[in-house]
Design a binder for these strands. Sequence first.
DNA 1: CCTTATTCATCACCATTCTTGATAATAACG
DNA 2: CGTTATTATCAAGAATGGTGATGAATAAGG
Lengths: 290, 290
Amino acid sequence: MRAPTLDLTLLRTLVAIADTGSVTAAAKRLAYTQSTVSMQLQRLEAQLSLTLHEREGRRIRFTSEGERLLSHARRLLALNDEAWSDMQARQVTGDLTLGIPEDYASLLPSVFAYFHQLYPAVGLKVICGTSTHLVEQVKAKELDLALVTRQRNSPGGDVIRREPLLWAVGMNQQPLLSDPLPLALYSPGADVFREVAEQALQSAGRSWRVAYTSQSMAGLAPIVTAGLAIVVVTRSMLTPALRPLDESSGLPALPMIELALHRAPHRPSEPARRLGELIREQLAAPEQAL
Amino acid sequence: MRAPTLDLTLLRTLVAIADTGSVTAAAKRLAYTQSTVSMQLQRLEAQLSLTLHEREGRRIRFTSEGERLLSHARRLLALNDEAWSDMQARQVTGDLTLGIPEDYASLLPSVFAYFHQLYPAVGLKVICGTSTHLVEQVKAKELDLALVTRQRNSPGGDVIRREPLLWAVGMNQQPLLSDPLPLALYSPGADVFREVAEQALQSAGRSWRVAYTSQSMAGLAPIVTAGLAIVVVTRSMLTPALRPLDESSGLPALPMIELALHRAPHRPSEPARRLGELIREQLAAPEQAL
DNA sequence: CCTTATTCATCACCATTCTTGATAATAACG
DNA sequence: CGTTATTATCAAGAATGGTGATGAATAAGG
């Protein structure tokens, strides 16, 4: 009368046995006693009134029924784990402040949307700023997390991914390769793109002048698209209005930069941990950048 | 350390509560005590350390977490039930003989394939014969099941579906409406199609002659496609070589016939029960006939 | 407004189930 | 052939889950 129900615990040990190939190893993995696992297997067979396994010598062999149940079990457990972690995720609560460079804001909305879906009870605040400033704020515990750009192999934070830097110019403009080279740069001195560009030009023996400065690409864009200056961007910051320049332009190659995640010095809050992981997962593959 | 695992039994009562809208009703449905269901709900909440429900007055309301868990639960239970019945199906074993009219053989291969997938341990034998003969064989317990055609409202067996009978002629032939009408019929007198055709013609006052007889459509086909005779078929027996005739041909309308399943008089074996159900399910909709 | 009828949560008790440690049986390995 | 590793089995204790009874809360009805 009552609907027959599989015991997921028993299915869990079943796949453990299958994975490890032995009852004892499965017991070790699941922190059960060997006798427990042995009896669990029997219990499962009794409940289904089926023979799931046979022994040839010492080795275990699953019958075709056993194999079939295994595939059911894996599917069920996958669904179970997903359901469980989803339910747990909804319990993660708190507030959380993340800092990002303005130019990366466009990269993250989908991550924020996903994060909110997973952790609807977390209040997420995002502030923009320059990388150097963000790092200071994280150290001062004004931010829980900060995603920053930096030169390769700088200390602190975890590298999320590396991106090539590119010279770019307005889409319909000829590269303006006069001497000194007119550059559009971020305003304050402490900017990674600026540092990198200046170093590259210096070692190539080229002179340059700052044709325009702004806090962000959004501010530089008009000048660049108008063809009045050249700018340094990452691939993910390229827009239809920008045209990347390759080595044939005669400009020195630019090094990779790193996108790194800094965490506040104290033990990260649960929401911070989760968002950090999510950012790592979502941004790890440089491919899927916009 | 040990992987967290949901208890499907508890999820089952959760959806019962949701479906019925009350703890008591859920208890009744699941054949538990009311107190049991009440405690099961609490247990579920305790295991997840979540609040799944609230009460407004007497009525129960699920929290958003509760609703979410419900959807997980339904999916998990669906998978569980599927897995369970699949495993049970593999235990169904034995031999089984089914009789079908030769003309319906083409309708059933997919059913047999599906049956074998569900019940690989069942040895299925299929024999062909005329409907009247098959019914006798079932009564004599020589067959476990027989799918037969018969006139409407005949006694015995369960109706699987009803099908219209059609007059048909060779695809590129003009209907041969001479008097007497040349018919291609199944050979022995005791044939349903033949009975139906003769009755229809008689009450319409038409004369006819038997131009050709055979045990099956396969035998009649050459004569009919050659335009030497008219034949009676069901819609599912139409082939590209046959053209159905509508009322504009002047032939009398033919009644529906029934496709019925006869079971051997003793209690049907488990395999027979299963195959019977499967045939009913698969053939119930006249649409999906070939 | 009081009575009556449901519905639900809680409790103690009991039965069952599950886990464990110990032991015996079986196979692999030198 | 002894040693080692793996497994099945058993008895026992612990823990879990179900039951019936009870009382509180809520809705319905006079």
